[in-house]
Design a protein around this nucleic acid. Structure first.
Lengths: 139, 139
DNA sequence: TAGTTTGTAATGCCAACAGTTACATAAAAG
DNA sequence: CTTTTATGTAACTGTTGGCATTACAAACTA
């Protein structure tokens, strides 16, 4: 299983915004910290805007800033904002319906996957952006 | 985040083997149920062999069968046998070391990822192959 | 020896995604 | 109102990963 690196990038970006405590940061500055292209950052920021995690302005002296306290932003929420595809890939091709197993395995597998995903998100929800920021500062 | 479909395929394949209760099944037969190529199946079987989940023989009348009771095989073990890459992708490029956040964010992110992965595997461990087989038979 | 099945290499193909360039749009500053 | 700064977005490239396929040697049975 393999995520895109959007989640890791989002945590990084939001940490920088939290670090700046309300000052607006440009996509260029964020891109420098993440070491990538500003366009990659802007595409990510669009997802974070939709989730109302940040607030972005255009024009001179503009950029992005957090929309709420780092205490009230957790990893699960970030994960859901930026990760579009399901974590577990199901079978690409349809199992053989003539096989008694093939006929009903998909539903069973889906159930397993959903449960695991919920468990994972529940764990992610335990960590807030404030926790992350603190570790970044002390570590 | 996105897994390969090897995990789903492995659950499918092992379910068929459990269904056959010790009779050897060829990669061709398994491939038919999964609706894929026998070579794909054989590569998957190699991973399951390494994990000692199955026992495979070559030659006429040969094939694969389970190496232990479906009760003693759980989803976490299957997951670990066939899924080689980490579920969460970290940043492809190195963050800027001049940025106070960039300098230490990787370690913090890794910690978050490890914890989430453990939580996910703990959930997967709750379901055995016997559970899956029962659902397949009744559903 | 003939027949069956796995192990494995070589190759093709396709989708996903990071990255890049380019430019229109919007907002602030002078 | 013009200049400057910054975002939004489209278009394209390049790379990577992974499924699929063909082909054949190796192992095993009868």
């Amino acid at each position: 299983m393999r995520t895109s690196c959007r989640f890791a990038m989002a945590v990084h970006v939001l940490s920088v915004l939290a670090y700046q405590e309300g000052d607006r940061v440009t996509s260029a500055a964020l891109a420098e910290s993440v070491n990538t292209n500003p366009v990659i950052i802007r595409r990510l920021l669009l997802s974070l805007q939709k989730a109302k995690l940040i607030d972005t302005c255009r024009g001179a002296g503009a950029g992005s800033r957090l929309n709420r306290s780092p205490r009230r932003i957790n990893m699960a929420e970030i994960y859901r904002s930026v990760e579009e595809s399901e974590p577990f890939a199901t079978l690409t091709r349809k199992p053989d319906a003539h096989c008694p197993v093939g006929r009903s395995i998909i539903a069973v597998i889906d159930e397993i996957f959903s449960s695991a995903e919920v468990a994972m998100e529940r764990d992610l929800a335990k960590t807030t952006l404030a926790d992350v920021l603190q570790k970044v500062k002390t570590g």
